[in-house]
Design a protein around this nucleic acid. Structure first.
Lengths: 330, 330
DNA sequence: CTGAAAGCGCTTACAG
DNA sequence: CTGAAAGCGCTTACAG
């Protein structure tokens, strides 16, 4: 690989001048500039980013740590994050933590030691709080809220409202026995959604019926089996998310329970698969694109302004499809 | 951020010694070693990878360039690639080319200038051939074959056999009018599968019926509409891939055409969604895990042995599910 | 406008 | 076994 030194020699100028031409950091004699540009063109010279990073203490890399690839929500949001980063001349380095705190810490350390400019965290682990405390670069957490902040920005959709919308929708459709699939209580998303469900039930004087469930397909299968045993009268289900909603449907269909005639289902997220699945899933849409782009821009803003951590809540909306319908006479 | 120099000072040794302790590159007096380790522990020192990369001319990063996030095949294989890389102490930097040659070239250049140790390419663009010609790092191409090789390794599944298995299976199920959804002919995968289909048709004296189709959902919808007009007698479809198979099903279901009773469908890839969809999709399985891990190891081997480009074909198999069945009396 | 110098934080011959 | 020195390829005060 050719270096800036050789380009300088070929163009008959100093390395400093070549650097100035490349970066436009100072005026350079037109004549020399042309010569340099010509040599760069001819030699196909690419400045070594590693050397540049070492000096600048910035790599133009934003790290993205994901828990796994099981949930399309994660993979779909990547697209927007990557696109926004590309527009802003940043690169995305993705790693997976497998919900393993050790691996998560390793990934964090790796990104720091690579001079990453920031980290976007979509994580299920709450036990990285301490790791995050004195991290030297800005961190954006999507969809989880931790109880302190410094260089931390938190983005999440309005989970409370989402659960309310879902539950109210089932009520409007004519459901009387609505079961809430309650996510792990260590997640703020699950706590807020649970509260949304409870509040609607109380307002409407409905029985509160819940079943514990994680955010993945397998857990959805298991929880649905339990749900049907515990609440055979169920006629509406607020699922943990779309993947779980699909699992719920699979179990119901397998048992010959008609959806939506006998039991209605509302998911959460609006992953693209929700509208492709048969039946198409009624769900609560999270504004993934907005959230993804905001995550990238928070990090860039942080670098510019050194603003302190903030918290953003994104609006959600109900999208009705084929797993719910308005019953006759309601 | 603390540097190796300060660690050295605190431990009362030279930076060289600290480096030797960290990397285990030479024997160090036990006493000193302990002191260094203690200081590292206390200061939470992390060696700067950028500086290390600059010297080593290797960043332990493998770049992964994907065309888009539309096809779960791409996102599912990421998991295996990342996992294998993690085991081997490499990191994966992911970027998307949007099937845009300009962006693809930029990503390639970026990875080179970052001292990436190799690149894994899952691309739809054939027009990067030239870019690849004098690339200074090893490249692994998954699922496309180009017509030359040097530092290039090519991995692909046995597309020919896959298409044969799919077509033969439909014949065995009792289909008489089998339509092949023919992928873009610039892709070797599409050419090979087309040949597999043709060969079975000829052997079985079946009419050859094809319709052009890309590898994404929207294209699947459009092509299916055309297919039904052109071949109303169709009773079996070899779809471009699982996503397209799902699109085919959607259109058929919408028109009230029963699957598999009236028309049978076989997909390709065996993405995890194929077994979750209703009905579950009969498909040809690509060994994604093997391919993903091999891709990573090819790059590492290349660095070790400077082997020249090779080509690997992975075996496929048919997985029968609910979109095909053996008709009575066949 | 421009070049020589110093330095970003590491690692590895080299000499002892 | 160990330290001083040089260097990886850039960039930016500094002096002119």
């Amino acid at each position: 690989m050719i270096s800036i030194r050789e380009v300088a020699k070929l163009a008959g100028v100093s390395p400093s001048t070549v650097s100035r031409v490349i970066n436009g950091t100072a005026k350079v004699d037109e004549e020399k500039k042309k010569r340099v540009l010509k040599v760069i063109e001819e030699t196909d010279f690419k400045p070594n980013q590693v050397a540049r990073s070492l000096f600048k203490k910035s790599s133009s890399i934003i790290g993205l740590i994901l828990p796994n690839t099981n949930n399309p929500f994660f993979t779909e949001i990547i697209k927007y994050i990557e696109d926004e980063a590309y527009k802003q001349n940043y690169k995305i380095l993705i790693s997976y933590s497998d919900n393993n705190p050790k691996k998560e810490k390793e990934n964090l350390d790796m990104l720091i030691s690579m001079n990453a400019d920031g980290i976007i965290l979509l994580t299920s682990c709450e036990n990285i709080k301490n790791e995050l405390k004195n991290i030297p670069i800005p961190v954006v957490i999507i969809d989880r809220s931790l109880d302190y902040s410094n260089n931390l920005t938190q983005l999440a959709c309005d989970h409370y409202k989402g659960a309310k919308l879902a539950t109210e929708h089932l009520v409007e459709c004519g459901c009387k026995n609505i079961v809430n699939m309650k996510g792990p209580m260590e997640f703020s998303s699950a706590r807020l959604r649970y509260k949304g469900y409870i509040d609607v039930c109380q307002k409407m004087s409905l029985d509160i019926m819940t079943i514990d469930c994680d955010y993945d397909y397998d857990s959805g299968i298991r929880s649905t089996e339990k749900l049907l045993k515990k609440y055979p009268e169920v006629d509406g289900i607020v699922a943990s998310n779309d993947i779980v909603a699909i699992a719920v449907y699979k179990v119901l269909a397998h048992k010959g329970i008609d959806v939506p005639e006998k039991v209605m289902i509302v998911g959460f997220d609006n992953i693209s698969f929700a509208s492709v699945f048969t039946p198409e899933i009624t769900t609560i849409e999270q504004p993934m694109e907005k959230m993804g782009r905001k995550a990238v821009n928070s990090i860039i803003d942080f670098k510019k302004n050194k603003t302190t951590g903030e918290s953003y809540i994104f609006d959600v909306k109900l999208i009705q499809r084929q797993t719910t319908f308005f019953k006759e006479g309601v």
